[in-house]
């Protein structure tokens, strides 16, 4: 019971963006971090899984083929949180999160409102509940988008750089929340993320993509080696691994051009 990508290719316009990705698995109860340089195809991969971007190949979620399912069917089980969450909608934070719930389930109003209030509270958003989205900072808006994601209670939750605009406090708070969500509710969580130290600390599993290809998958300690980092990012980095802790990466220098 997990998300398995057997084979996945995707073209945008005339460009082949994903090349036969295969052998990737994300398990429930775990956080899988998706890493790779800019333009590697992280967002495209997550969108293809969600059914927002057309792709060909074969993937299964809990044993069921995803490619035969429509966007509407897929989004009952999974949710994709876009990288760009900016909007100028004249909606209050509460209304926006309620909307995320309402486009998914029909239920008594009382239950929906309670679920929204709880999601807002989990992300420390309750003081902003009546603010309009247009009047939020980028980071606040990003946390609202995360609240919109969790209020839908998906089986598979995919977040596209969800901490890119967050301060240190909220980076830790959000990732800690997702970690607990995965563990307690047995959710499959996939996060595209650039901060390797956060990935090393919170992820149970890493997917590495570069130039639309699957480079390697595995546990953070196995993947985040100086050689791999040189191969993936064209950087020189030190990796320390204190016993009983997660790997710690200290980038030294960018060596050569990263390519494409």
């Amino acid at each position: 019971m997990s998300l398995i990508i057997d084979q996945l290719s995707c073209s945008l316009g005339k460009r082949r963006v994903l090349h036969d990705l295969a052998g990737m698995e994300a398990r429930p109860g775990e956080i899988t971090a998706l890493i790779g340089p800019n333009g590697a195809g992280k967002s495209t991969l997550l969108r293809a899984i969600a059914g927002i971007t057309m792709a060909s190949g074969h993937m299964t979620l809990d044993g069921l083929s995803l490619e035969t399912q429509s966007l509407g069917q897929r989004t009952r089980k999974l949710y994709y949180l876009p990288q760009d969450t900016s909007t100028q909608a004249a909606l209050s934070v509460f209304e926006a999160v309620l909307l995320a719930r309402r486009t998914q389930v029909v239920e008594p109003n009382r239950h929906a409102l309670a679920a929204v209030a709880q999601a807002l509270q989990s992300l420390e958003l309750d003081p902003l509940a009546e603010r309009e989205l247009a009047a939020l900072s980028g980071g606040q808006r990003q946390r609202v988008a995360i609240a919109q994601a969790i209020v839908r209670r998906p089986r598979l939750l995919m977040l596209d750089e969800p901490t890119s605009a967050l301060d240190l406090h909220h980076q830790l708070q959000v990732l800690d929340y997702l970690h607990r969500l995965a563990r307690q509710d047995d959710v499959i969580v996939v996060i595209a993320i650039h901060d390797l130290n956060l990935a090393a600390r919170f992820a149970d599993h890493l997917w590495v993509v570069k130039e639309g290809r699957h480079i390697v998958s595995g546990r953070p300690g196995d993947v985040l080696t100086p050689q791999r980092l040189r191969e993936i990012y064209a950087i020189e980095a030190d990796v320390e691994w204190p016993p009983g802790s997660s790997p710690r990466i200290t980038p030294r220098s960018a060596t050569r051009r990263l390519g494409s």
Partner: peptide, 17 residues
Amino acid sequence: WRLTALRLGDVQAQAMG
């Protein structure tokens, strides 16, 4: 609800199914 969701942008509306 679907019309309201459009104001969040197309990708987010699509993500909501």
